[in-house]
């Protein structure tokens, strides 16, 4: 079993199975281009630093990849937006503790940065599910977003939204 070491921004090392890393387009590209798959290359001697991802977030990403080991990996960006995506129960439970906080957003950004399409899709879907049936101010309040609109701007947007009146 080939192990490849990932190094987080806070210098934590995470030895990960080579097979798991196929889910990450970014790391896969690195591995292929650095010939880490070659037998004569010492993969253990070439840790891959990921300074964009903190240790706790990388740990969650690896945990997610371990659970989804063997899942088909999406190719390309031609995602069908009309297809209804359902977040599986395990993933829902996985996202829930960090929901409405910066950790979940960091996980999403990490998924985008590491190009883990399935994780990115499910994470965005989980975020979008929290928006359903809510107004803009309610979403801001739940997610702790400061209001960057002036009252006049907010009123103008509300009027724009009432386009049929």
């Amino acid at each position: 079993m080939v192990l490849i070491t990932l190094v987080s921004s806070d210098e934590q090392n995470f030895p990960v199975e080579r097979e798991l890393l196929k889910q990450s387009g970014t790391i896969e590209t690195l591995i292929v281009n650095m010939n880490l798959d070659d037998e004569d290359t010492d993969a253990a001697a070439m840790p891959i630093p990921l300074p964009n991802v903190k240790g706790d977030v990388l740990e969650k990403v690896i945990q997610w990849m371990e659970h989804h080991k063997g899942d088909p990996v999406k190719e390309g960006d031609n995602e069908d937006n009309n297809a209804e995506i359902v977040v599986p129960q395990w993933d829902d439970d996985f996202f829930k503790p960090a929901m409405y906080g910066s950790k979940h957003l960091e996980l999403t950004v990490a998924a985008s940065y590491l190009d883990i399409k399935n994780l990115l899709t499910l994470s965005c879907k989980a975020i979008s599910n929290t928006f359903k049936g809510k107004t803009g101010p309610q979403i801001r309040e739940e997610w702790g977003v400061p209001n960057e609109f002036t009252p006049e701007e907010e009123e103008a947007i509300r009027k724009e939204n009432e386009w049929s009146e």
Partner: peptide, 28 residues
């Protein structure tokens, strides 16, 4: 990081997942 400063490509993905039916709330 918070919702307001999420990268644009992620915001687009979230809006796509929310769908047009709730997009008016996203504008606020």
């Amino acid at each position: 990081i918070n919702l307001a400063n999420l990268p644009s490509d992620i915001v687009i993905k979230i809006i796509e997942k929310v769908g047009v039916e709730s997009v008016d709330a996203m504008r606020l």
